[in-house]
Amino acid sequence: MDIQNLMLEITESMLIGDEERVMKIMDYIKQQGLKLSIDDFGTGYSSLSYLKRFPLDELKVDRSFIIEVPSKKDDCAIVKAIIAMAHSLELSVVAEGVEEQNQLEFLKEVGCDIIQGFYFSKPLVADEFEQYVLSKNDLINTCN
Rank of each mutant, 00 (worst) to 15 (best):
Q101D: 11
I10S: 04
V133S: 01
E96Q: 10
S88G: 07
N137V: 15
I29D: 03
D40F: 09
V125L: 12
Q103P: 11
D27A: 11
Y28T: 14
L48C: 02
Q116Y: 07
L139K: 12
V69R: 03
L59H: 07
C143D: 08
L15Q: 05
P55V: 10
E100I: 00
Y119H: 14
D2M: 01
D74L: 09
L139P: 00
D40A: 10
E12T: 09
V22D: 00
A86T: 08
Q103I: 06
L56R: 03
S88L: 01
I10D: 01
V69S: 02
S49H: 07
M7S: 01
E90A: 13
L6C: 11
L89A: 10
G42V: 12
N141R: 09
D2H: 11
G33W: 11
K136F: 05
N5V: 01
P70D: 01
E96P: 01
S88T: 14
F65I: 07
L107E: 04
T43R: 04
C76K: 06
G97N: 05
L139V: 06
I29C: 03
S71N: 14
N141Y: 12
V125A: 13
E20K: 13
A86E: 02
I140R: 13
G33N: 07
N144S: 12
S49V: 10
I3G: 00
V93H: 05
N137R: 13
V110H: 03
P70V: 04
E128Y: 04
D113E: 03
R63N: 08
E9D: 13
K136P: 00
I66D: 04
